[in-house]
């Protein structure tokens, strides 16, 4: 009787472990979004994200140093000349957010913007 109980407990434990492992491995890696920075624009200049869905934004500078800063999003980046960086980001609020190049890059620096649309 006691050994039956032990076997049942062990079986449940193994099953639970298997379910956990299988659900973990079934999780998709965060979607990667590629954004190029080049005087004086980000390409694409607008991206769409889902609230609470993690993504990785891959920024590449095609020329000089660039940066990115938002007033209302916890998303900042410094993109060195000719470099590529991955920036993990999970939006937690829905809305439209406009970011701005934060590293002075020349005469069009002030109008170099990236818009992120976050939907529920």
């Amino acid at each position: 009787m006691r050994s039956n109980h032990f076997a049942a407990t062990l079986g449940i434990a193994i099953l639970a472990g298997a379910i956990t492992i299988s659900s973990y491995s079934a999780q998709d890696p965060p979607r990667k979004i590629t954004v190029e920075a080049k005087r004086y624009q980000f390409t694409p200049s607008e991206i769409d994200l889902k609230k609470n869905v993690p993504v990785v934004i891959e920024f590449t500078s095609k020329d000089v140093d660039h940066g990115l800063v938002f007033d209302d999003l916890a998303l900042t980046a410094k993109i060195g000349k000719g470099k590529t960086i991955d920036v993990p980001f999970t939006p937690t609020e829905a809305g439209t957010f406009v970011g701005q190049c934060s590293s002075f890059c020349g005469e069009g620096h002030g109008s170099m913007k990236l818009t992120i649309h976050v939907t529920e």
């Binding site: 007033d71 701005q100 002075f104 020349g106 005469e107 069009g108 620096h109 002030g110 109008s111």
Partner: peptide, 10 residues
């Protein structure tokens, strides 16, 4: 004139 060269916030 620096309009466009720098952002409004800057």
């Amino acid at each position: 004139a620096s309009h466009g060269i720098l952002s409004d916030k800057e």
